[in-house]
Design a protein around this nucleic acid. Structure first.
Lengths: 197, 197
DNA sequence: CTTGTTGGTCAACTCGTGTTGGCCTATGTT
DNA sequence: AACATAGGCCAACACGAGTTGACCAACAAG
């Protein structure tokens, strides 16, 4: 074992020819998962989009679950956000989430799948647990209220994502980016910093 | 044709013995659809829950789509809500939605399915179009802003339903009923009646 | 008692899915 | 030139889904 490879350049990134198709498959998978959800996005359809054989998907990603896992690997990276000015954190968060959603279609995929798959739902929850709640704990009054405040913020942005990117309500898609920030920003700001009503 | 039946009592509701199993099937279907979504809620599983044969489901409801259609037939009936006091409409709406969701598990089913099925998504959208937007038009300033305001309200309550009943985030399920009304009520109130920011 | 209707079960069919293993063809090394 | 290997395709398998139609058991009517 451990023989073969290209012979000369082994450990270093070898820039295999297959990396191109690997990437093509992953891109097609992201599109299909985002558009159709887990069950309806068949491996055959993904392979057709990538113009390769279904068995290649298995060779490169093991099985369908593995493909999905790699397709939706993403981190919102909330701790990297600027905290001040403190009274702008609501608008900053909303703007950040909008950008995130418009640049990564795998987030839509994650929501579509999370609606029926507990594992995907857990993945979303982990963002709340590990990033949003700590943020709420640092920003808001009464640290023990942090889970509640963070849950309200999550429900706000996920609700928008649901109506706009998943259900695709025309009235929600018609909203402009800054219009959304103007409406939701104060809401998130209040959930995070206002005293308990 | 038109012969047969029970002979004596034809047109009137005959109280067939099968009505009981019909109802049992429908109840089991609602539970399964709410818990698992459309694809994962198999006819075989529903039939097992109802303790009858899968073929009975077909006999009574034609096919799986027909069963789902009857299982999620529901109307939120927003026009029947009291409008005044006008500054309480936000809290009234939130309270109404909470009650709706806790009494009818088919709403959770509709959301789970709507995440991947355009037909179910359209069903949800029709509520927005035919009930929420008209309500926003009557309540808010600038009637041409009604779709935007209604969309924001929909995103608010659907976001809560998503995190609480579909994704089942513990932090969201931990919120008390009146706690939710206290937080979301003012939000919805502002979306409906506040001047454009 | 016979008979036709109703409520129900059983076993099978068909189709699409994820998944597997064998085979072919370049490509690059010796 | 000979050959090993990586990249790729093809055909098939196994399985679970929705759906169908033949058959069976009560039971009420004639």
């Amino acid at each position: 074992m451990f023989v073969g490879m290209t012979g000369t350049t082994e450990n270093q990134q070898a820039a295999r020819r297959s990396d191109a198709t690997r990437a093509t498959i992953l891109a097609a998978a992201r599109e299909r998962f985002a558009a159709d959800g887990y069950e309806k996005a068949t491996i055959r359809a993904i392979a057709r989009d990538a113009k390769i054989d279904p068995s290649m998907v298995m060779r490169y990603y093991g099985n369908k679950a593995g493909l999905f896992a790699e397709a939706v690997a993403i981190d919102p990276n909330l701790p990297g956000l600027p905290f001040e000015p403190r009274e702008e954190i609501g608008r900053t968060l909303v703007r950040h989430f909008l950008t995130l959603w418009e640049e990564n279609e795998e987030l839509t995929a994650l929501m579509r799948v999370g609606a029926t798959d507990p594992a995907a739902a857990e993945r979303m929850q982990s963002v709340l647990r590990e990033q949003l709640i700590p943020l709420a704990r640092r920003l808001g009054p009464e640290p023990d209220q942090a889970p509640a405040r963070a849950a309200l913020c999550a429900s706000t942005v996920l609700g928008l994502a649901l109506t706009r990117y998943v259900l695709r309500f025309p009235a929600s898609m018609a909203l402009g980016r800054e219009e959304i920030v103007d409406w939701l920003g104060p809401t998130v700001q209040r959930y995070l910093t206002a005293p308990t009503p």
